[in-house]
Structure formats: structure tokens, C-alpha cells
Design a protein around this nucleic acid. Structure first.
Lengths: 348, 348
DNA sequence: CTGAAAGCGCTTACAG
DNA sequence: CTGAAAGCGCTTACAG
């Protein structure tokens, strides 16, 4: 292995000078600089990371601003798990991460957490900008401080985000459609269920809906009706109120797509109403959905991989800070297609 | 961060003694040893990996014995790619890996490569033991040298392998079955195609067949015939010879499962014979299969993730050598279920 | 059984 | 603009 000492000897300078050149720290004569660069390249110098980490003692402090995980959806716990994993495997580099968690839909708490981050003077931020307006304001502050930030889960246009890591919701809507199309007889109808107080504001669900419908425009063979319904909450009462009349008026329904992680509530409805023969496709793998997958009320789950997203976010941010490598601006993460038979392979 | 120096001061000994205790290098009085251990625990000492890597200058030399990748199946190139990735991200640790590749089915070349490995005195081996007898002999030699080895892709019982990394072929046969079962009308028949000179000896294909059939025994709703056929080569001629009469005698066939990566050859047959409406499910994602997935002659591919398998193998071996952590003996890797719509998310 | 010293390859002030 | 020296936390002989 080539050391800076070897380069220094060949160039007839000291190792201090070599170091200055290699790190563009200036204060070096152009001529010396060029010579050293040339020799370094010729000798295929690669820095010894163990030595530089040890000597520099530089630590990177990252902040992650995310919704809290909940029983209803452990999605966000997955991100934290993945981030921890990344930090561990980044040893022996000195990287710290602090988590600033807020209740989903609690704007006030979100703002509080961003305030804390701004005070803590961190080197980089991983942000789930689920509340658009508040997130934009925060990004403006980060821009002022010249602190880089990476979006996770949700994308906001016209910001200086370093990168985005998340699902291609439109395409994952198409996947749901293709699965239903494969299993459904051609003359049956399809019900699209959105469980949301405010569908307009939930970009993800909207994109999945659009992708779902687009598939049947350009690729699907199924030609039955596509019926959309919005249910304000996941209480059984609300679900009954909405779905009972729909099923009454549309006996041709053969499949349901639920655009969110709350798929299990619709599976529960089917179980209660003894509708075993209806295809059900939904999103996200976690215990409540899995139990209905096992009971075969849910046929497929399309699932993001939150651990991997969290892991990737940390790596990207760290490598940017450490090497100034500019990551891809937008990198969609693959989703898993899961059914009852693929489950045993995933539960580790 | 706690350093050995801190422990030494508290214990009233030198750092040399602390080091001897922490690494069980002996030559320490029981009393001293106990004291140091106690203090190290109390202070939550964790070694600085950068410093120890730098100081020890120990390098690990690994060997990977794998089949060569081919146009027909780039599967094994994927493993190499993953291993390289692992080595890179293992920086700044000093890990080298040498690849000893052999032509699939060439026993002589396999033996040659194992000889080379035995001569090169490596610290650990990653082995694809696709030729059982030859592999067992090699393992015996490794056992004599006390060199640890990890199996990849294929498992051989009654060896001292450190771990196994590969597919659960039986379960992935069940996945193929469940997909076909989902899409196929109940009264249609299913054709199982094995393209192999010697089905007996290819454990993988056998297990997939067993899994496939088991699904219909205990879970499937489809009750049509299951017809198995073995085709000796993937020449179009051989395929025609076998399949033409089968289709003639069994007009009820509605789906085909191909147990191997050669799925594209059967897709080609369907294309030539203009059999568009037959469901086709097969294995492994690579260009030839993908093109028929896009043309929708193949409905689903069930695919291993060779890169991740290669990566994992290196990590496991390295962490065993470096920390003596004993890995899980047998760890099945998840497979991807891929259709035409999930493809855009996977091509990075 | 124990300690003191040199050294791993780099970074960081500091002196000139 | 350049060099010499100290130090990061550990490991490795070596002396006693």
C-alpha cells in the first residue's frame, strides 16, 4: 500500500505538503501541487481510512426528524432501526445520530423538533417532510445554515434537498393493479378504498390511486367497473357505513385495493361479512396486515422496506459529508410483493 | 470515549497489561485480570476499531470458489459483484478476496481451483459446492487446515461449514405454485417443466418441484392435473419434441412452471406457437428472462438476489474471523417476486 | 507476570 | 509557501 510518506519521498517534499495537496487545503505552490498530484495518481494512492479517522477525530452529528412509530403502523420504527444499523456498520467512523420524533399530524410538535435541531447545530439532517408547509419553512432555515438535508418517504419540490429516498407511489399503484388483474375474472368490478381524513393532502395515496387506474388504461385486461370510495376513519362503523351499500348495489365486485397500510381493517370487514372470495391487495407488511395475509383474506401486500430506506439515508448523508460525493437526487426504493407463501422467507 | 489508557490508570497497571487482558493473551495474574475486566465493563469500554486496525496491520485473505458467470445466466457474476461491494465497504479493514472460478459442470477445473486455494493458505473460504462429491473432499482438506468455510447457493449436510447462504428452494417452489393458483381458473391443468440433463443431481430444481406440488396438496384451490416433463437441453428442437405432444394431448393446460433460470426458452416456445393465454412462472431475473417478462409471455419471475448473497457471505466470514462471532448456521435469503410492473423499480 | 517504547498512517497546529 | 513534531488509540516486540 502506498502511503503519503512514499509520495513525499518521491516528490522530495514533506508529508505535510502532500497532505495539503491531497485535501486542497491551499498554501501550496502550483508547481509542487501539480507534481504531488501526478505522483499520487501514478502510485495509485488511496488514503488509509483507519489512519485518517484516528488522526482527525472528526465526528459527524446527524439529526433524523421522523414521525413516531405506532401500534397501528410500525413503519417509522423500521426507519430508526435501519439508521441504527447504518451507524453501527459505519464503525470505526465517528458518526452520531439523534432522533427528533413527532406525533404524525401534530404540526406543533414537528415545529418544536425542528427548532431543537436548528439549535443543536448538526452536520446534516434526514427529514420526513410529511407536513409540507412546515417542512418548507424548516428547509429554508437549513439552507441559511448551509446544512445539507435528505428527504425520506415524501418529496417536496423546489427545495435544496440533497437527495430523496422513498417509494415510487405511482408505480406501486400499478403493481397493485397488475396483481388484481392477474387474479380477477374479466367481467368483475374493482373497489378502490382510501382510508383517509383528507385524501387531497396525502400525496402518497393519491399517487397510488393514479398509478392503479393508469394500469387499466394502458395494460390491464380486466374491463369491469372501478369504484372509488373514501372512508374517513378506520373504525368498523365508518367502514360498514360506506361499504355495505356499495356491495349491495354492486354485486359484481370481485376485488378490493386499499391504498394504505390500513388494509387489515378492510380484511376484518370481509371476515365479518364472510366475503371470502374477494381478492384483497394492500400495502405494508406489519403484524396486523400479516395476520390477515396468513388467514388469506389479504392476497398480496406491497411493502416498502423502511429499514433499508433508513440505512440508505444515513449512508448517503455520511458519504456526502465525508467525501463530498453528491448522491443521486431522487432514488426510488424497490418494494416487495408479498403473499402468504413468501412470508416464511421474510420473517428471518 | 473510554480508552485502554483510562482503564489502565484506574486499575493502576500499564496499557500493555490491559491489552493482554482484553485479548486473553495470558501472562497476566488472575487478580489483575479480574480487576481489569471489571473496570472495563464498568466503564463500558469499546475498542476503537480505527486504532486497532491501524496498529495491528492484520490482513484477512479470503477465497471464493464459484462457477463462472455466463451469457445464459449472469447469476454468478452477481455474487462476485456483491462480494466486491462488501470488500469496499469493509474499508478501512484490510480484507482481500481472491476468486477461483470454474466452468459449471467441469469437475476437473473445480478440483484444480480447490488445489490452488489449499496452496494459497487463505484465512477463510466461500464455496459454492455445486459438485457434491468433489466439494466434500475439499471440505475435508479445509477441516484439516482448520480453515473456516461458508457455503453459498447449495447446502451439503454433514460438513463443518460455518454457515449457509442461499435460497429456500422448497419454499420458492411453493411461491411459484401460489402465484399460478391465484391467476388460473380452477379447472385448468398445470405443466411443470424441468430443463436439465440430470434432474436427480440438481438438488435445487428437485426442491422447487417438491415445494410446488406440496402447495397444491395443502393449500391450493386449483384442482386440475399437474403434468411434469423433463427436457434434456434448452434447444428449441428438444423443447418442441417434448412439449408439442403434451399440448396436443392436454388441451386443458393453462399454466406452466419452469423450475430454473432457463424460463425464457419456454417463453420463446410459447411465442413461436402463439400461445399467449398460458400463464408462465419461472426463476431468476436477468436480461433474457426480463425481455419475455416485458412482452408478457412470462407473468412472474421468482428471483434470488445474488449480489446480496455474495455480500452477506463476505460479511459473515469476515466478522467470524475478526470477532469470532459464530454466524447462524443456515440462513435462507428472501426471493423477489417480480412482474412486468415491478420491473421499473428494480432496474435502479 | 509487568511496563516502557516504538510504530501503524494520517491530521493538526506551529514555527519559520 | 514549507517542514518538523506531536498525537490519535491501539498492537507488538522487548527487557526485566
Amino acid at each position: 500500500m502506498v502511503r503519503i510518506k512514499d509520495i513525499a519521498e518521491r516528490a522530495g517534499v514533506s508529508i505535510g505538503t502532500v497532505d495539503r495537496v491531497l485535501h486542497n487545503r491551499g498554501e501550496v505552490a502550483k508547481k509542487t501541487s501539480k507534481l504531488v498530484m501526478k505522483i499520487a495518481e501514478e502510485m495509485h494512492y488511496t488514503p488509509n481510512l483507519a489512519a485518517s479517522t484516528l488522526a482527525s477525530k472528526k465526528t459527524y452529528n446527524l439529526a433524523a426528524i421522523l414521525p413516531k412509530g405506532s401500534d397501528d403502523n410500525i413503519f417509522w420504527d423500521g426507519h430508526v432501526e435501519g439508521m441504527r444499523r447504518a451507524i453501527t456498520s459505519l464503525q470505526p467512523f465517528l458518526v452520531n445520530i439523534s432522533y427528533y420524533l413527532f406525533e404524525l399530524n401534530n404540526e406543533k410538535e414537528f415545529i418544536e423538533q425542528t427548532r431543537l435541531v436548528l439549535n443543536d447545530n448538526v452536520d446534516g439532517v434526514i427529514l420526513a417532510p410529511v407536513m409540507k408547509n412546515e417542512a418548507i419553512e424548516f428547509c429554508t432555515e437549513l439552507d441559511k445554515l448551509n446544512t445539507p438535508y435528505i428527504f425520506i418517504d415524501t418529496y417536496i419540490k423546489n427545495t435544496n434537498n440533497l437527495a430523496f429516498i422513498g417509494e415510487d407511489a405511482y408505480q406501486s399503484g400499478r403493481i397493485a393493479a397488475s396483481l388484481i388483474d392477474f387474479g380477477l375474472s374479466e367481467n368483475r368490478d374493482i373497489l378502490i378504498v382510501n382510508i383517509s381524513k383528507n385524501l387531497e393532502n396525502t400525496q402518497h395515496l393519491n399517487s397510488r390511486n393514479q398509478g392503479f387506474l393508469s394500469y387499466f388504461m394502458d395494460a390491464g385486461r380486466n374491463d369491469g367497473l372501478k369504484i372509488s370510495v373514501e372512508i374517513p376513519s378506520n373504525s368498523f362503523r365508518d367502514i360498514e357505513d360506506k361499504l355495505d351499500p356499495i356491495f349491495k348495489n354492486n354485486p359484481g365486485i370481485g376485488a378490493i385495493m386499499v391504498s394504505s397500510a390500513k388494509t387489515y381493517t378492510i380484511a376484518h370487514y370481509l371476515e365479518m361479512k364472510r366475503k371470502r372470495d374477494i381478492i384483497l391487495v394492500g400495502y405494508e407488511m406489519f403484524d396486523k396486515n400479516i395476520s390477515y395475509l396468513k388467514k388469506r383474506y389479504i392476497n398480496f401486500l406491497i411493502s416498502q422496506k423502511p429499514q433499508e430506506q433508513g440505512e440508505k439515508a444515513v449512508y448517503k448523508l455520511f458519504y456526502f459529508l465525508a467525501n463530498k460525493t453528491i448522491p443521486d437526487k431522487k432514488e426510488f426504493q424497490p418494494v416487495d410483493i408479498i403473499n402468504c407463501e413468501s412470508l416464511p422467507l421474510l420473517s428471518k
